[in-house]
Simulated scan of single mutants.
Amino acid sequence: MLLSPTELDVIGLTAALAATTTLILLVLGTPLAWWLAHRRGSASAMVEAVVALPLVLPPTVLGFYLLLLLAPSTPLGQFWEQLTGTRLAFSFSALVIGSVIYSLPFVVQPLQSAFQNLPRGLLQAGATLGATRWDQFRSLVLPLTRRSFIAAASLGFAHTVGEFGVVLMIGGNIPGETQVLSIALYDQVETLRFAEAHRLAGGLVVFSLALLFLIYRNNGPAAWRVRI
């Protein structure tokens, strides 16, 4: 059966959330992964533990504290409302914030592993030839870790698509604004619309399996394995 306009809107909103989250994660996660890959000590261990926290913390716990942080009565919520004229909690922006935090280890850890496995002598050779750090990263690091970047981006995107607890806590179930695929699926099951639920659930299974197959086929499990 063809997807309904409502389901297409839900898919579009979910894709927009996942794409926005993945882009932000790559921008923020790359320097963080580089720092973690080249630092050892209590400070880096604490940062690494914070990054990995969403892997073991129940999503509803993270969503609960984010909801308290983004509430209209908090300084952040008041600042956002003064800046944009809209509330932060139960908005698309709140979903982006929660998704970035919740999917952070799925982007940072594969990149950190890739950076740690780079041959140090190669970067040192580039430095002796006068290459700046940016030149080394652009000409040496990026080509050598391209597959890990693809795997990290794919995992960040897929993990955001599958979120439920965090997005429900901070976004609710507002059609056209915060109703993403996982929430729409839950709503369909709750109202006994199993035919519609089968379409969304089946599509998510196919999407997830196809993505993992491509990652394994092109990179192998070591290129993207997350660690706790």
Rank of each mutant, 00 (worst) to 15 (best):
S148H: 12
L214R: 05
A52I: 04
H38Q: 12
N219T: 14
A43V: 15
I228G: 09
V47K: 02
T21P: 03
S154A: 15
Y102K: 11
S154V: 06
L32F: 04
P59D: 11
A16V: 06
S44W: 09
G156H: 05
S73A: 15
Q124W: 13
F164Y: 15
I11V: 15
P31F: 10
V161E: 00
E190L: 11
W134C: 04
T60H: 09
F164R: 06
A125C: 07
W80V: 04
T128E: 13
A127G: 02
R217E: 10
S4M: 07
F92H: 09
D9Q: 14
P59E: 09
A33V: 01
V56N: 07
F213V: 08
T14C: 07
A201I: 04
E163W: 03
I101C: 07
L28M: 11
L88H: 09
S42I: 12
G77H: 07
V108M: 05
L70F: 14
R217F: 10
L68Q: 14
A18W: 11
R193F: 04
E81F: 08
L140S: 00
V10W: 01
V189E: 10
W35L: 12
F137G: 03
A45I: 03
R87E: 13
L2N: 10
A197W: 06
A151N: 12
T160Y: 05
F92I: 08
V27K: 04
I183D: 06
L62P: 01
